[in-house]
Design a protein around this nucleic acid. Structure first.
Lengths: 268, 268
DNA sequence: CGAAGTTTTGAGGACCTTCAAAAGTTGTGG
DNA sequence: CCACAACTTTTGAAGGTCCTCAAAACTTCG
């Protein structure tokens, strides 16, 4: 186990909006990492596992899920290439959900200990991890909303739009089409409805000329009407990345009062 | 705006499982903070706001929510005293959800800039923030599951158990009773069902002798059967806190291989 | 080409919703 | 401290969304 050339991919992702210091970058590239290949249709993390590494998804498509005694499954999130699949587990001992590969995946695994160490040594790295977790959390909130309060057709449309935006952000969508490697039964588990009802929801979207599908490829026929129908607002995906550190934010007012004698964190 | 004695409460919360260094502690206590009082039944953050501070909830009870055009509302989380209500927004510009006070609340507000600065200056503080966000994320996942795949009575039972555990953790529950300052309409918004159906779900729980209610006080009559009925596992609440740093984790194996010549992050 | 998996269709039924009104509770002002 | 208004909980009834079961049509893969 030693440094791996693909680590640079993950580094680039973390630095997307906010470059690291040169020392942090070098330390990051030196992290021991391991390439993992997972075949399609595998539960490669299970609820109750105690994973000791987190993985960057280089290629593939995975879901996180929870299951009930009777076998019913709720998918609580999808991951596309470029996502950190399981940073969630770095600070926690026992996984509270499973991870499933819908297609063959290649991942780059980092030991939790190493991730925690580097976050401790370089605050900008810790902040990037924090932002990643926060970004995931925003998606979970939106899913709760989707599952709880939108009708099946609207929830389906909303999920398709989310996936469209996420694939577009990594260059895996032309303006309107993308490949979504899941079955209707998987969509059902993500939407909290039955597979039969997913089928009928998709039919209604097709009848409204909002989408077309061919094999696993989804085409959004009328983006504007689709966005309106689903009440989709991409803000929760935080495409703009995290706030910048110290970018013209020194003269900000707080509660309308300019702080003249504010003690500062670094002034100790 | 200057240091506030109640900051110590928040500090104690963050240090619960992992003490900070003395310097971090001093810097933290010197953070400028402001006490806020919010009356009951106020939306004190709205979707689309650009908050510039995050608040520690000293007393009260709030929910986070999202709304649809037609006015239907999904509550995506509750917060009890001791929680950081809106750390989510520290790294992000625009709030993607609102915050509502169910009863009168007192909060301690910290400027985002100050929180980001101190997280940058002291890695243990950054890690504590990261863990807080991660812990929230685990709750959001569980809610998606609850809303998507549990029947109304089971979902109701699950939510009551979550609140029981969270109140118990802050000493606001004897073994079985706690005060939940929300209406059945609020529970409906949290569960993604109608208020009428919440009422009927509660009746079925009462008929099964799982709970009793009196005004806003909920009593869990038979904890064991309730936990079994709701398939509740408190692991997602992370009562044990985050993993410790460097606590006997140096000789851990990675993928079954003892790393002899592992480059380390600190070895740069 | 056959087997296995996925999508589609149909029908009946369960869960949950909406609307509406009654009963009970909480809060406020005189 | 009572009276009244506003809100919350409860009940009933009708209806819609979504579910389950089952089978047929279609696709994918070895």
């Amino acid at each position: 186990m030693s440094a791996h050339p693909d680590t640079a991919l993950y580094l680039a992702r973390l630095e997307r909006r906010q470059p690291f210091s040169e020392r942090a970058r070098q330390a990051f590239l030196a992290l021991p990492a391991q390439r993992q290949c997972v075949a399609a249709d595998h539960d490669f993390v299970r609820e109750g596992d105690r994973p000791i590494y987190s993985s960057y998804l280089k290629e593939g498509f995975v879901s996180r899920y929870k299951t009930l005694r009777d076998g019913s499954r709720q998918i609580v999130g999808f991951h596309v290439p470029g996502d950190m699949v399981d940073l969630q587990s770095a600070l926690v001992i026992v996984a509270d959900h499973g991870i499933y590969s819908h297609i063959a995946c290649t991942l780059i695994a980092f030991a939790h200990d190493d991730l925690l160490d580097i976050a401790e040594a370089f605050p900008e790295v810790g902040r990037a991890f924090w932002f990643d977790t926060l970004s995931d959390a925003a998606v979970f909130r939106e899913w709760t909303f989707n599952v709880g309060r939108r009708s099946a057709p609207k929830a389906t449309a909303h999920l398709l739009l989310e996936m469209h935006y996420r694939f577009a952000a990594i260059g895996m969508s032309d303006g309107e089409s993308f490949e979504l490697p899941v079955t209707q039964a998987d969509l059902a588990d993500a939407l909290g409805i039955s597979a039969v009802h997913v089928n009928r929801s998709l039919q209604s979207l097709r009848a409204e000329r909002l989408i077309r599908t061919f094999r696993k490829t989804v085409t959004i026929e009328n983006m504007a009407r689709m966005i309106d129908f689903a009440e989709f607002d991409p803000a929760y995906l935080h495409p703009e990345g995290p706030r910048q550190v110290r970018a013209a934010r020194d003269h900000r007012l707080f509660n309308g009062v300019r702080p003249e004698l504010r003690p500062t964190a670094s002034g100790i």
